[in-house]
C-alpha cells in the first residue's frame, strides 16, 4: 500500500529538477532497474573476489611448482587440479586471475577517483570564479585533452618508472579535463536557473550560493560520468599493463599483462588469453551496466 502510493507520487513528478533532487528517489529507481541489479551483482562479485583473494585462491599465484609440465608446444589447459589450467610460467591460472582482480579493480577505481576529484576541483574553481581563472583552467584542460593519452601514459612511465603507480597516474590524468569541463559546464547551466537569482535576491552570500546551491545541483552529471568512466578506467588500466606499464615485478598478477604474455602462445594455450580477457570484459560490463542505470536514474530525459 505505502509502496504503491510512493510510486504514484514518483510518477507525478515530471519536473526535471525534482528528478535530480532526491538521492532517495534515484536509489529507488536504481534498485528497480534490472540492468543495475545485474551490473551491481557483477561488481560485488569481483570486489568480493579481490578482497578475499587469499582465501579463495587455491594456490599461491607466484608459485611455479608445475613448471615441469610446461612444454613450448603444450601448456596444460583446465583440469581437475587447475580449473583454469597453468600459465606459461607453470603457475596456477585461476589463482593468478583471482589475485589479478585486486590490481585491476584497485588501479581502475583509484585512477578514476583521483581523476574525478582533481577534475571536480578544477571545474569547481573555474565554475565558481569565472573570468580569467575560468579561461586559464579551461585552456589548460584543452592542452591536456590535446595530448594523446597513450603518449601521456608512456611519458608518465618514463618519468616515474615502470610501476602500478604509473598506470594510476596515466589513467587519472586524462580524466581530469573531462571531469573539470563537465562540472564547470553544469555549474554554468545551474547558475542561470531561477533559484540562484532568487537566492541572490535575498542576500545569500556568494560562497554559500556556490557551495550549497549551485554545486549540489551540478553533481548529477559528474556521478553519471564517474560510474560510466569506471569501466573505461579498468579497461585502460588493463591496456596499459598489457603494454608493459605495470609493476616491474613480473610475478605480480595483472589481467592486462597476463593477456600480453600469452599473445605468442595463442595457438598453444588459448585458455591463457580467454580467461583474463573474459574477466576484463565481465568486470567492465558490470561497471558499464551499473553506470548506465545510474544515468537512467539521474537523467530526467531517460526516465520511463
Amino acid at each position: 500500500m505505502s509502496v504503491l502510493t510512493r510510486r504514484q507520487r514518483a510518477d507525478q513528478l515530471d519536473d526535471p529538477d525534482v528528478a535530480n533532487s532526491l538521492t532517495r528517489e534515484a536509489w529507488r529507481r536504481i534498485r528497480q532497474n534490472p540492468l543495475a541489479i545485474v551490473g551491481g551483482t557483477i561488481i560485488v562479485f569481483f570486489v568480493l573476489i579481490a578482497v578475499f583473494a587469499p582465501m579463495l585462491a587455491p594456490f599461491n599465484p607466484r608459485s611455479n611448482a608445475w613448471f615441469d609440465q610446461i612444454r613450448p608446444t603444450s601448456i596444460p589447459g583446465p583440469s581437475r587440479d587447475h580449473w583454469f589450467g597453468l600459465d606459461e610460467g607453470g603457475r596456477d591460472e585461476l589463482s593468478r586471475l583471482i589475485f589479478g582482480a585486486r590490481a585491476s579493480l584497485m588501479i581502475g577505481v583509484l585512477s578514476l577517483g583521483i581523476g574525478a576529484v582533481a577534475g571536480a576541483f578544477f571545474g569547481l574553481v573555474a565554475g565558481a570564479f569565472g573570468g580569467w581563472v575560468d579561461s586559464l583552467i579551461m585552456r589548460l584542460t584543452d592542452i591536456l585533452l590535446a595530448v594523446p593519452s597513450l603518449l601521456l601514459a608512456l611519458s608518465v612511465a618514463a618519468v616515474i618508472g615502470q610501476s602500478q603507480t604509473a598506470i594510476v597516474v596515466a589513467v587519472a590524468v586524462p580524466n581530469i579535463p573531462l571531469f573539470a569541463r563537465m562540472l564547470r559546464s553544469s555549474m554554468l547551466g545551474e547558475r542561470q536557473k531561477d533559484y540562484v537569482t532568487s537566492a541572490t535576491s535575498v542576500g545569500v552570500r556568494r560562497r554559500s550560493l556556490v557551495m550549497r546551491h549551485v554545486v549540489p545541483n551540478s553533481l548529477a552529471p559528474m556521478l553519471v560520468q564517474a560510474s560510466l568512466a569506471l569501466s573505461t578506467a579498468i579497461i585502460d588500466a588493463a591496456a596499459l599493463s598489457f603494454l608493459g606499464l605495470g609493476s616491474a615485478d613480473p610475478g605480480v598478477p595483472e589481467w592486462g599483462r597476463m593477456l600480453a604474455n600469452t599473445t605468442r602462445l595463442l595457438n598453444v594455450a588459448p585458455h591463457l588469453a580467454i580467461f583474463p580477457g573474459v574477466a576484463i570484459l565481465i568486470t567492465a560490463l558490470g561497471f558499464n551496466l551499473f553506470g548506465e542505470a545510474v544515468r537512467e536514474a539521474l537523467d530526467p530525459k531517460l526516465r520511463r
Binding site: 519536473d15 532526491l22 541572490t200 535575498v202 542576500g203
Partner: peptide, 30 residues
C-alpha cells in the same frame, strides 16, 4: 541590502526554490 532591506518574490515558484534543499534550510539560510 538584498533580503535584509529589500527582497524580491519571483514569477515561477516551481523553479525559484532550490530543488535539493529542504524549504527549512532555504528559510533558515536567509
Amino acid at each position: 541590502v538584498r533580503g535584509r532591506r529589500a527582497a524580491m518574490v519571483f514569477q515561477d515558484p516551481m523553479t525559484s526554490l532550490n530543488p535539493v534543499l529542504t524549504i527549512g534550510r532555504q528559510l533558515t539560510e536567509t
